[in-house]
Computed example of a mutant assay.
Amino acid sequence: MIKESELILNADGSVYHLNLKPENISHLIITVGDPDRIDSITKHFDSVEFKTQKREFQTQTGTYKNKRITVVSTGIGTDNIDIVFNELDALANIDLKNREVKEEHQQLTFVRIGTSGSIQKEIPVDAFLASEKAIGFDGLLYYYQSDAFLEKEFAENLHQHLSLHPHKAKPYVVSADPTLLDHFSQDDRVFKGVTGTNVGFYAPQGRVLRAALQDPNFIDQLTTFTYKDYKITNLEMETSGIYGLSKLLGHRALSMNAIIANRETGDFSQDSLKAVEQLILYTLDKITSL
Protein backbone atom coordinates (compact mmCIF):
# COMPACT_ATOMS: atom_id res chain seq x y z
CA MET A 1 0.00 0.00 0.00
CA ILE A 2 1.32 3.44 -0.96
CA LYS A 3 1.38 5.81 2.01
CA GLU A 4 -0.81 8.93 2.12
CA SER A 5 2.30 11.10 2.33
CA GLU A 6 3.60 9.64 -0.97
CA LEU A 7 0.41 9.54 -3.02
CA ILE A 8 -1.43 12.67 -1.90
CA LEU A 9 -5.11 12.91 -2.77
CA ASN A 10 -7.55 15.78 -2.42
CA ALA A 11 -10.69 15.46 -0.31
CA ASP A 12 -12.70 14.45 -3.38
CA GLY A 13 -10.26 11.64 -4.21
CA SER A 14 -8.51 13.44 -7.07
CA VAL A 15 -4.72 13.52 -7.39
CA TYR A 16 -3.15 16.40 -5.49
CA HIS A 17 -1.74 18.79 -8.10
CA LEU A 18 -3.76 17.99 -11.22
CA ASN A 19 -7.14 17.76 -9.47
CA LEU A 20 -8.05 14.78 -11.67
CA LYS A 21 -9.76 11.43 -11.19
CA PRO A 22 -9.10 8.40 -13.43
CA GLU A 23 -12.32 8.83 -15.39
CA ASN A 24 -11.33 12.40 -16.35
CA ILE A 25 -8.50 11.42 -18.72
CA SER A 26 -8.04 9.63 -22.03
CA HIS A 27 -5.14 7.35 -22.91
CA LEU A 28 -4.29 9.93 -25.62
CA ILE A 29 -2.83 13.01 -23.96
CA ILE A 30 -1.53 16.25 -25.47
CA THR A 31 0.68 18.34 -23.21
CA VAL A 32 1.38 22.05 -23.52
CA GLY A 33 3.36 24.39 -21.32
CA ASP A 34 1.02 27.38 -21.33
CA PRO A 35 -2.46 26.96 -19.76
CA ASP A 36 -3.80 29.53 -22.23
CA ARG A 37 -2.87 27.20 -25.10
CA ILE A 38 -5.43 24.63 -23.92
CA ASP A 39 -8.34 26.55 -25.47
CA SER A 40 -6.35 26.97 -28.69
CA ILE A 41 -6.48 23.18 -29.01
CA THR A 42 -9.90 22.29 -27.64
CA LYS A 43 -11.65 24.98 -29.74
CA HIS A 44 -11.20 22.46 -32.57
CA PHE A 45 -12.86 19.63 -30.59
CA ASP A 46 -16.34 18.40 -31.47
CA SER A 47 -17.17 18.53 -27.77
CA VAL A 48 -15.51 19.05 -24.36
CA GLU A 49 -16.78 16.86 -21.54
CA PHE A 50 -14.55 17.92 -18.66
CA LYS A 51 -12.52 20.93 -17.49
CA THR A 52 -10.51 21.65 -14.38
CA GLN A 53 -7.60 23.86 -13.30
CA LYS A 54 -5.36 24.03 -10.26
CA ARG A 55 -2.35 26.37 -10.28
CA GLU A 56 -0.72 26.18 -13.73
CA PHE A 57 -2.19 22.73 -14.36
CA GLN A 58 -5.30 23.00 -16.54
CA THR A 59 -6.94 19.94 -18.08
CA GLN A 60 -9.67 19.55 -20.67
CA THR A 61 -10.94 16.25 -22.08
CA GLY A 62 -13.12 16.00 -25.14
CA THR A 63 -13.62 14.45 -28.56
CA TYR A 64 -11.99 15.29 -31.89
CA LYS A 65 -12.98 13.24 -34.97
CA ASN A 66 -14.41 10.51 -32.72
CA LYS A 67 -11.20 10.23 -30.66
CA ARG A 68 -11.29 11.02 -26.95
CA ILE A 69 -8.29 13.23 -26.14
CA THR A 70 -7.04 14.91 -22.98
CA VAL A 71 -5.08 18.17 -23.09
CA VAL A 72 -2.98 19.09 -20.03
CA SER A 73 -0.90 22.18 -19.35
CA THR A 74 2.32 21.38 -17.51
CA GLY A 75 3.77 24.81 -16.90
CA ILE A 76 7.45 25.34 -17.65
CA GLY A 77 10.35 23.05 -16.73
CA THR A 78 11.12 19.42 -15.98
CA ASP A 79 10.28 19.92 -12.29
CA ASN A 80 6.67 20.39 -13.38
CA ILE A 81 6.94 17.45 -15.78
CA ASP A 82 7.92 15.28 -12.81
CA ILE A 83 4.65 16.21 -11.10
CA VAL A 84 2.39 15.93 -14.14
CA PHE A 85 3.65 12.63 -15.51
CA ASN A 86 3.77 10.85 -12.15
CA GLU A 87 0.22 11.93 -11.37
CA LEU A 88 -1.12 11.03 -14.82
CA ASP A 89 0.52 7.61 -14.51
CA ALA A 90 -1.02 7.21 -11.05
CA LEU A 91 -4.47 7.85 -12.54
CA ALA A 92 -3.91 5.08 -15.07
CA ASN A 93 -1.95 2.52 -13.09
CA ILE A 94 -2.69 2.89 -9.38
CA ASP A 95 -5.94 1.98 -7.64
CA LEU A 96 -6.40 5.26 -5.78
CA LYS A 97 -8.89 3.84 -3.28
CA ASN A 98 -6.76 0.87 -2.23
CA ARG A 99 -3.46 2.72 -2.88
CA GLU A 100 -2.04 -0.27 -4.74
CA VAL A 101 -0.43 -0.61 -8.16
CA LYS A 102 -2.79 -2.28 -10.62
CA GLU A 103 -1.82 -5.70 -11.94
CA GLU A 104 -2.52 -4.69 -15.56
CA HIS A 105 -0.44 -1.80 -16.90
CA GLN A 106 -2.16 0.83 -19.05
CA GLN A 107 0.09 2.57 -21.57
CA LEU A 108 -0.54 6.26 -22.16
CA THR A 109 0.42 8.15 -25.32
CA PHE A 110 1.83 11.64 -24.85
CA VAL A 111 2.39 14.25 -27.55
CA ARG A 112 3.84 17.60 -26.54
CA ILE A 113 2.94 20.67 -28.57
CA GLY A 114 5.48 23.35 -27.75
CA THR A 115 7.53 26.25 -29.03
CA SER A 116 11.28 26.13 -29.40
CA GLY A 117 14.29 28.00 -30.73
CA SER A 118 16.60 26.49 -33.36
CA ILE A 119 20.38 26.66 -32.99
CA GLN A 120 21.08 25.39 -36.52
CA LYS A 121 20.76 27.65 -39.58
CA GLU A 122 19.04 24.97 -41.65
CA ILE A 123 16.07 24.70 -39.24
CA PRO A 124 14.04 27.80 -40.23
CA VAL A 125 11.49 29.68 -38.17
CA ASP A 126 7.88 28.43 -38.52
CA ALA A 127 9.10 24.87 -39.22
CA PHE A 128 7.82 21.83 -37.31
CA LEU A 129 10.44 19.76 -35.50
CA ALA A 130 9.89 16.29 -34.07
CA SER A 131 12.37 15.59 -31.27
CA GLU A 132 14.05 12.30 -32.18
CA LYS A 133 16.15 12.53 -29.03
CA ALA A 134 16.21 14.80 -26.00
CA ILE A 135 19.26 15.90 -24.03
CA GLY A 136 18.57 16.72 -20.40
CA PHE A 137 20.74 19.33 -18.71
CA ASP A 138 18.43 19.31 -15.68
CA GLY A 139 19.53 16.20 -13.74
CA LEU A 140 15.96 14.99 -13.12
CA LEU A 141 16.48 11.43 -14.34
CA TYR A 142 19.40 10.87 -11.96
CA TYR A 143 16.93 10.90 -9.05
CA TYR A 144 15.36 7.67 -10.38
CA GLN A 145 16.99 4.25 -10.18
CA SER A 146 16.47 2.81 -13.66
CA ASP A 147 18.77 4.13 -16.37
CA ALA A 148 18.77 1.28 -18.91
CA PHE A 149 17.04 3.46 -21.51
CA LEU A 150 19.58 6.30 -21.26
CA GLU A 151 21.93 6.61 -24.26
CA LYS A 152 25.15 6.74 -22.31
CA GLU A 153 27.66 6.80 -25.17
CA PHE A 154 25.90 9.77 -26.77
CA ALA A 155 25.79 11.58 -23.42
CA GLU A 156 29.45 10.84 -22.66
CA ASN A 157 30.57 12.22 -26.02
CA LEU A 158 28.59 15.40 -25.40
CA HIS A 159 29.95 15.72 -21.87
CA GLN A 160 33.51 15.49 -23.16
CA HIS A 161 32.76 18.11 -25.83
CA LEU A 162 31.34 20.66 -23.37
CA SER A 163 33.26 22.70 -20.83
CA LEU A 164 30.74 22.13 -18.07
CA HIS A 165 31.39 23.54 -14.62
CA PRO A 166 31.68 20.59 -12.17
CA HIS A 167 28.68 21.87 -10.20
CA LYS A 168 26.39 21.46 -13.21
CA ALA A 169 24.46 18.24 -13.90
CA LYS A 170 25.94 15.81 -16.40
CA PRO A 171 23.78 15.60 -19.56
CA TYR A 172 21.63 12.55 -20.24
CA VAL A 173 20.05 11.46 -23.54
CA VAL A 174 16.65 9.80 -24.13
CA SER A 175 14.92 8.88 -27.40
CA ALA A 176 11.35 9.44 -28.50
CA ASP A 177 9.00 6.53 -29.02
CA PRO A 178 10.02 5.28 -32.50
CA THR A 179 6.48 4.47 -33.63
CA LEU A 180 5.22 7.94 -32.77
CA LEU A 181 8.29 9.56 -34.33
CA ASP A 182 7.72 7.73 -37.60
CA HIS A 183 3.99 8.47 -37.64
CA PHE A 184 4.37 12.21 -37.00
CA SER A 185 7.37 12.69 -39.32
CA GLN A 186 5.72 11.57 -42.56
CA ASP A 187 5.33 15.10 -43.89
CA ASP A 188 7.71 17.45 -45.69
CA ARG A 189 7.00 20.17 -43.12
CA VAL A 190 8.55 18.14 -40.30
CA PHE A 191 12.27 18.12 -39.46
CA LYS A 192 13.70 15.52 -37.11
CA GLY A 193 16.11 16.82 -34.50
CA VAL A 194 17.90 16.48 -31.20
CA THR A 195 16.36 18.76 -28.58
CA GLY A 196 18.29 20.23 -25.69
CA THR A 197 16.21 20.65 -22.53
CA ASN A 198 17.59 23.46 -20.38
CA VAL A 199 16.95 24.32 -16.74
CA GLY A 200 16.04 27.94 -17.48
CA PHE A 201 15.31 30.44 -20.24
CA TYR A 202 18.05 33.00 -19.71
CA ALA A 203 21.56 31.95 -18.61
CA PRO A 204 20.96 28.21 -19.19
CA GLN A 205 20.16 29.06 -22.81
CA GLY A 206 22.98 31.57 -23.17
CA ARG A 207 20.88 34.74 -22.87
CA VAL A 208 22.34 37.76 -21.10
CA LEU A 209 20.36 40.64 -19.62
CA ARG A 210 22.15 41.97 -16.52
CA ALA A 211 23.63 38.82 -14.97
CA ALA A 212 26.85 37.56 -16.58
CA LEU A 213 27.15 33.98 -17.84
CA GLN A 214 29.40 31.44 -16.15
CA ASP A 215 30.08 29.92 -19.59
CA PRO A 216 29.52 32.38 -22.46
CA ASN A 217 30.54 29.72 -25.01
CA PHE A 218 27.93 27.14 -24.00
CA ILE A 219 25.53 27.68 -26.94
CA ASP A 220 28.40 27.73 -29.45
CA GLN A 221 29.57 24.41 -28.04
CA LEU A 222 26.07 22.95 -28.44
CA THR A 223 25.82 24.22 -32.01
CA THR A 224 29.13 22.65 -33.07
CA PHE A 225 28.60 19.28 -31.37
CA THR A 226 28.15 16.20 -33.57
CA TYR A 227 27.75 12.53 -32.66
CA LYS A 228 27.48 10.07 -35.54
CA ASP A 229 24.88 11.76 -37.78
CA TYR A 230 23.31 13.76 -34.96
CA LYS A 231 23.66 17.39 -33.96
CA ILE A 232 21.69 19.46 -31.49
CA THR A 233 18.95 21.33 -33.35
CA ASN A 234 16.85 23.24 -30.82
CA LEU A 235 16.41 24.24 -27.19
CA GLU A 236 13.41 24.21 -24.85
CA MET A 237 12.61 23.22 -21.25
CA GLU A 238 10.47 20.06 -20.99
CA THR A 239 11.20 17.30 -23.50
CA SER A 240 13.92 15.35 -21.67
CA GLY A 241 11.66 14.99 -18.64
CA ILE A 242 8.75 13.90 -20.81
CA TYR A 243 10.82 11.25 -22.58
CA GLY A 244 12.57 10.04 -19.44
CA LEU A 245 9.48 9.64 -17.27
CA SER A 246 7.56 8.05 -20.15
CA LYS A 247 10.29 5.42 -20.51
CA LEU A 248 10.44 4.87 -16.75
CA LEU A 249 6.69 4.41 -16.44
CA GLY A 250 6.10 2.36 -19.59
CA HIS A 251 4.43 4.99 -21.74
CA ARG A 252 5.24 6.41 -25.16
CA ALA A 253 5.95 10.05 -25.95
CA LEU A 254 6.84 12.48 -28.70
CA SER A 255 7.64 16.19 -28.58
CA MET A 256 6.48 18.34 -31.50
CA ASN A 257 8.00 21.82 -31.68
CA ALA A 258 6.99 24.93 -33.55
CA ILE A 259 10.30 26.67 -34.27
CA ILE A 260 9.62 30.34 -33.58
CA ALA A 261 13.23 31.58 -33.36
CA ASN A 262 16.59 30.81 -34.93
CA ARG A 263 19.46 31.68 -32.60
CA GLU A 264 22.07 31.34 -35.37
CA THR A 265 20.44 33.73 -37.85
CA GLY A 266 18.78 35.96 -35.24
CA ASP A 267 15.37 35.48 -36.88
CA PHE A 268 12.08 35.40 -34.96
CA SER A 269 8.76 34.28 -36.43
CA GLN A 270 6.69 37.09 -37.90
CA ASP A 271 3.54 35.23 -36.81
CA SER A 272 4.33 32.73 -34.08
CA LEU A 273 0.65 32.25 -33.21
CA LYS A 274 -0.02 31.08 -36.76
CA ALA A 275 2.91 28.66 -36.59
CA VAL A 276 1.58 27.17 -33.35
CA GLU A 277 -1.96 26.96 -34.74
CA GLN A 278 -0.71 25.05 -37.77
CA LEU A 279 1.19 22.65 -35.51
CA ILE A 280 -1.93 22.13 -33.38
CA LEU A 281 -4.02 21.16 -36.41
CA TYR A 282 -1.27 18.91 -37.73
CA THR A 283 -0.90 17.16 -34.35
CA LEU A 284 -4.63 16.67 -33.89
CA ASP A 285 -4.97 15.04 -37.30
CA LYS A 286 -1.98 12.79 -36.65
CA ILE A 287 -3.04 11.73 -33.16
CA THR A 288 -6.51 10.76 -34.36
CA SER A 289 -5.00 8.50 -37.02
CA LEU A 290 -2.91 6.44 -34.59
Rank of each mutant, 00 (worst) to 15 (best):
D187M: 06
F201M: 10
K133P: 00
F184V: 08
N198W: 11
V194L: 04
K152E: 14
S163D: 15
F184N: 00
A148H: 14
H183S: 12
T197P: 08
A211Q: 15
K168I: 05
R207A: 09
D187P: 00
K192Q: 15
S163L: 09
H159M: 10
F154V: 08
G136Q: 05
L164D: 04
D147K: 06
N157Q: 13
L209K: 14
K170P: 02
L129V: 15
A130M: 06
L158G: 02
D177R: 00
L181R: 01
P124Y: 07
D188S: 15
P124V: 00
A148T: 13
L213S: 03
Y202I: 09
G193T: 10
Q214V: 14
E151D: 15
K170M: 11
S146G: 05
D138H: 06
S185A: 10
D147N: 12
Y144S: 03
P178G: 06
E153I: 08
R210N: 14
A148S: 14
K192E: 15
H161Q: 08
A176C: 13
Q160R: 15
A203K: 13
E132N: 09
E156T: 13
P171T: 08
Q145G: 15
A130W: 02
P124H: 00
F137L: 12
Q205K: 09
K133A: 13
L213C: 07
R207W: 03
H167V: 12
S185G: 07
S163R: 12
K121L: 10
Y143W: 09
P178E: 14
V190E: 11
